[in-house]
């Protein structure tokens, strides 16, 4: 070693030996180090010092808890809109936008007042049908304020009984236009129904005939890479927590339903409703309770 007495035997420098000790040295040193008692002695002292250093630099066991307690009392972050509202410039900008919108609205109303009711109805009728279809999920059924007049293009006219008539189709009555969500089986509503993201945490209660068999079924149906914990309560109820991808969760729900278990929780995902969901592959925590009962 260059800085010590055992250098005379062709030992590596202290720096080389230290690096070798950390797995960073030249592989060629290995045969020398294994045969050299002086180097072995130095390495043994390195190991002893390292072990002691690790030990004295250990945190006390309650440090994490103390940190968590301190962080729990930290003030909550202000919502973004409050942060923005505290900027005077943005406040003035917001006021300007509101004022402009109010002026535009007032102008539009004045302009509409100057237009004859017949022309207004002519222009409004097709739009109101389209709009009612587009917003069917969220809005109440629109009722035409003014009966639409004969469309010169022949597309829409008012029927004798006040129903809207679209060329080439059956008359549509205002009473027939319903909210899509009110009748989920209606074929026309499917395209408009809002797709759901699986929540990051889902809790489902399943009613089963045989708890033990159901538990085995769940464990067998979970993806191999899902992390999970299982607990059995005194009353025999089984609780399983699993972490799995949202895609796998829908598949699991379908499998359990197919195996004769009965899902009583309304939360998505529901058996056979994969088309209602947007799956992204993100991880979801699934809390599943099995309770005795049976279908």
């Amino acid at each position: 070693m260059n800085t010590s007495a055992n250098n005379v035997g062709g030992c590596p420098s202290l720096e080389e030996l230290s690096a070798w000790h950390d797995g960073m040295g030249a592989a060629g040193l290995t045969s020398h180090v294994e045969a050299c008692s002086a180097c072995q002695q130095v390495l043994a002292s390195f190991r002893r010092i390292d072990a002691a250093t690790r030990r004295v630099a250990q945190a006390s066991p309650d440090l994490a808890e103390r940190i968590k307690e301190r962080c729990r009392v930290l003030p909550k972050r202000e919502p973004l809109f409050l942060v923005l509202w505290n900027q005077p410039l943005l406040r003035w900008a917001a006021a300007g936008i509101v004022a402009t919108a109010a002026l535009l609205l007032a102008y539009q109303r004045m302009d509409a007042g100057r237009t004859s009711p017949a022309v207004a109805a002519n222009e409004a009728a097709p739009t109101s049908v389209a709009a009612s279809v587009m917003v069917a999920e969220n809005a109440p059924p629109p009722v035409p304020a003014v009966p639409p007049a004969q469309d010169e293009g022949g597309r829409t006219r008012a029927g004798d009984d006040g129903a809207l008539v679209v060329a080439g189709s059956e008359p549509v009555r205002a009473s027939q236009i319903t909210r899509a969500a009110a009748d989920p089986s209606a074929s026309g509503a499917d395209g408009m129904r809002q797709a759901l993201l699986v929540p990051s945490r889902v809790r489902h209660v399943w009613v089963v005939k045989d708890l033990e068999a159901a538990k085995k079924q769940v464990l067998a149906s979970l993806p191999a890479d899902a992390s999970l914990s299982v607990a059995t309560a005194e009353d025999g109820t089984v609780s399983i927590q699993a972490l799995l991808a949202d895609r796998a969760l829908q598949s699991l729900v379908d499998t359990l339903d197919g195996a004769g278990m009965s899902l009583v929780s309304p939360t998505a995902p529901q058996p056979g409703r994969a088309k209602d969901l947007v799956v992204t592959g993100r991880m979801v925590r699934y809390d599943l309770d099995l309770v005795p009962g049976g279908r």
Binding site: L14, S18, A19, V42, S45, I49
Partner: peptide, 17 residues
């Protein structure tokens, strides 16, 4: 690399190991 080696050597000297 050099500082770690120096630290170890210094500790060896001080601890006499």
């Amino acid at each position: 690399k050099s500082r770690i080696a120096r630290a170890r050597e210094e500790m060896r000297k001080r601890l006499r190991v």
